[in-house]
Amino acid sequence: MKVLLINGSPHEKGCTYTALSLIAEELNRAHIETEIFNVGTRPVGGCIGCGGCAAGSGCVFGGVVNEAIEKARTADAFVFGSPVHYASASGNMTSFMDRLSYAGGKYLAYKPAAICCSARRGGTTTTLDQLVKYPEFFHMPLVNGSYWAMIHGSNPAQVLQDEEGCAVMRELGRNMAWLLQCIEAGKAAGIRHPENPRRPMTNFIR
């Protein structure tokens, strides 16, 4: 089993990476493979709704989004992490998530997901509220801890001083490992996720 952890921070080894690393450590203890994937610093353009991804070759703009889609094919679960920028996820992370979901959503469906964010002080709950919308769209079971998955600090050393935040990240890792093991046991017993029919799409027009 493998979990793909998405780092939406422009700082490859910064605060968000530190939070994701705590989650990854717990997963590794449960003998689950992990990879931290960096969205990076190069600008990620937003989705323009062109529909070109319907051809099945990923996003027509390519780049880091298509790299992630390829990794998503074989991942068993995901953790989406972002720093807080003006009380929301980073701009690159927002564009990345829009395009990953639109072009690669079929590789996310029914796989467990967790979200987390890092901040110096505020804006965490709005960022979590933003990011949670993506897994809710794709039947992804949400993994939680005993508190909202936020961590505080201006650098990795300060993050590690946030004892409660660190504890929640570790809880996420342990809970995700448990859920993945339950899913594997279910598969061995012949239990599969439901095949839901395509939902009707209605516009709010009278």
Results as ranks from 00 to 15, higher is better:
Ala185Met: 06
Ile191Lys: 11
Gln161Thr: 02
Gly62Lys: 06
Tyr147Pro: 02
Asp98Pro: 01
Pro141His: 09
Val60Gln: 15
Val44Pro: 11
Ala114Thr: 08
Leu160Glu: 10
His11Lys: 15
Cys47Arg: 14
Gly40Trp: 15
Val64Lys: 12
Leu100Ile: 04
Leu142Glu: 07
Thr126Val: 01
Ser88Leu: 06
Cys59Val: 05
Leu20Lys: 11
Ala109Asp: 13
Ala149Phe: 05
Glu67Met: 03
Arg73Trp: 15
Pro194Gln: 08
Gly62Tyr: 11
Val143Trp: 06
Gly14Phe: 09
Leu100Gln: 04
Gly165Leu: 04
Leu4Ser: 11
Gly105Val: 01
Cys166Asp: 11
Asn92Asp: 13
Thr94Asn: 02
Glu184Met: 01
Cys182Thr: 06
Met93Lys: 06
Lys187Phe: 02
Tyr147Gln: 13
Arg174Thr: 04
Ile205Phe: 09
Asn203Ile: 02
Phe61Val: 03
Met201Leu: 07
Tyr110Met: 00
Thr74Ile: 07
Leu20Gln: 08
Met169Ser: 03
Ile48His: 15
Ser101Glu: 03
Gly62Glu: 11
Ser88Gln: 14
Gly91Phe: 07
Cys15Gly: 09
Asn7Cys: 04
Leu20Tyr: 15
Val44Ile: 04
Asn144Thr: 10
Arg120Ala: 10
Asn66Lys: 10
Ala68His: 08
Ile151Phe: 09
Cys166Gln: 10
Arg121Gly: 06
Ile191Tyr: 13
Ser118Phe: 11
Ala75Cys: 06
Ile23Tyr: 15
Asp76Glu: 14
Leu131Pro: 11
Pro197Leu: 01
Pro10Ser: 12
Ile205Ala: 04
Thr127His: 09
Gly153Trp: 15
Asn155Pro: 07
Val168Met: 06
Thr125Ser: 07
Ile48Cys: 06
His11Leu: 05
Thr41Ala: 09
Asn203Lys: 13
Leu108Cys: 02
Ser118Cys: 07
Gly165Lys: 09
Ser57Asn: 15
Pro156Trp: 09
Leu22Phe: 10
Gly105Pro: 02
Ala19Tyr: 15
Leu180Pro: 08
Asn203Asp: 05
Phe204Ala: 11
Thr34Val: 03
Glu35Ala: 05
Ile183Pro: 10
Asn38Ser: 14
Ser101Ile: 00
Leu180Glu: 04
Ala72Tyr: 11
Gly46Pro: 14
Ile115Leu: 00
Asn155Gly: 01
Thr124Leu: 04
Phe96Ala: 04
Ile48Lys: 14
His152Cys: 03
Pro156Cys: 01
Lys111Asp: 00
Pro112His: 10
Ala87Leu: 05
His139Leu: 01
Gly190Asp: 08
Cys53Ile: 02
Thr202Pro: 06
Ser154Lys: 14
His11Phe: 08
Val159Trp: 14
Val44Ser: 07
Gly52Thr: 07
Ala77Phe: 11
Thr124Ile: 00
Ala89Lys: 05
Leu5Thr: 09
Val143Gln: 06
Tyr134Pro: 01
Leu142Val: 01
Ile48Pro: 06
Gln181Val: 00
Phe37Ser: 08
Ser101Lys: 01
Ile36Lys: 08
Cys50Glu: 13
Gln158Ala: 02
Ile115Asn: 00
Gln130Phe: 05
Val3Cys: 05
Gly63Asn: 04
Glu35Thr: 09
Gly52Tyr: 13
Ile115Ser: 00
Glu26Thr: 01
Glu33Trp: 09
Ala77Trp: 04
Pro141Ala: 01
Gln181Phe: 01
Phe138Cys: 00
Gly105Ser: 04
Cys166Trp: 02
Pro135Cys: 03
Glu136Tyr: 04
